[in-house]
Nucleic acid binder design. Structure first.
Lengths: 208, 208
DNA sequence: AATTTCGGTGTACATCCGTACACCGAAACT
DNA sequence: AGTTTCGGTGTACGGATGTACACCGAAATT
């Protein structure tokens, strides 16, 4: 019973995060009241402040969690990466589908709050996406055949790819796990990545 | 003074729509109270019901307006369309930049409510985007060289293009008109469209 | 000229909101 | 063993919210 005190606090904190995630599912963080969360968790409203100064700070914690999950996803992508582009594409989409399935609430949260959330939350999400774009750009730069590319073109390509992956994730959020619709979105994502790959292979940066 | 009565009602209705657009700018429709809107317009709260049964219905009216604007944009794109792909791309991006500039509030509204709004509003926006994808697909199908394409591949390409245009619009929303950042986003959008064009020109649909 | 229609008014009420404040009891520390 | 720390409690407040209800006055209709 060494850590009973901090354990208990951590347990309550988790319960608050989960409750907020569940309750904001149908609406938004900005429309979520501290009292709803407290009631869902089973604590008195004022006890909320023992964990977060405000709902917005709760939101920032959720974003951090979600982006950690996203970071896991990206690490997974890199680990999966081999030499064959087709394999990389298929693997990437498979990982994305799986991630969205098992962390559905987190990704739905990000999609919702990306433009509608509190200012701090929006900024945190934007920074996370920019980070993903930069990481992808450096990964592509290390691929063979990328030496003819302008740094700027690499960046723009990364933005295109990440953007289409975000769009794919958003589409996946609307499909049921294992459904035909989900497979359809996944198949479309694979095709789109291949189209972009074909575009990239035939691209010549204008050095003018 | 033929239409004094309906004129007045229409004027108030417009004021309500504009007020809702302005007030939801920092937050969301679902966090917007009927009383705030009424106060902003300068009418008593209960007078709101003379125009809309609820805030959600107000939102549906705003979506319809915004999608009309979007439709104007698409018509503009088609009108601009010539033969040279480069010209079409530059023109399309220019129109998009201009539209987002002059109807900033409406596009910001759509970006916000697309995933965070009331269910009816979300569906209306999704339908509008699907419509845009279908219209683009039929336009591309009429282009020379599109005969080797699968119908499904055409659809997927359209989704990719519309998706990247939506992403571009979302990025434009965060830039000031005439700023260097705005031009940077526009330039990236042109490059991305060219990359996709290169991909499309070298694409061979698998008829397997 | 008499009547109807209807956008807007004003009051009223139950409910929810964030949060300030004083307090409790048990785990943690000394 | 005595004291401190701190997560959680309970009460209480002013303010905002949606909406029901009765009403008004002028434009529109008859």
């Amino acid at each position: 019973m060494a850590q009973t005190r901090v354990e208990q606090k951590e347990r309550t904190r988790r319960a608050i995060l989960d409750a907020a995630l569940a309750l904001s599912e149908d609406s938004t963080l900005v429309a979520l009241s501290l009292r709803q969360v407290a009631k869902e968790v089973g604590i008195v409203p004022t006890a909320f402040y023992r964990h977060f100064p405000s709902i917005e700070d709760l939101g920032l914690a959720l974003v951090a969690e979600s982006l950690d999950t996203l970071r896991t996803l990206l690490r997974e992508l890199r680990r999966t990466a081999g030499e064959d582009a087709g394999t990389i594409i298929d693997g990437s989409v498979a990982v994305l589908v799986e991630q969205v399935r098992q962390d559905h609430a987190h990704y739905a949260f990000i999609a919702r709050e990306r433009f509608a959330g509190p200012a701090g939350v929006r900024e945190a999400i934007a920074r996370g996406i920019e980070l993903a774009e930069r990481e992808l750009a450096t990964d592509i730069a290390h691929l063979p055949g990328a030496d003819t590319w302008t740094e700027r073109d690499l960046q723009v390509l990364s933005e295109l790819i990440v953007g289409s992956m975000v769009t794919t994730a958003e589409r996946l959020l609307g499909t049921a796990p294992g459904s035909a619709a989900e497979e359809r979105v996944a198949e479309a994502a694979r095709t789109q990545l291949r189209m972009m790959l074909v575009g990239a292979r035939n691209w010549r940066s204008r050095t003018t």
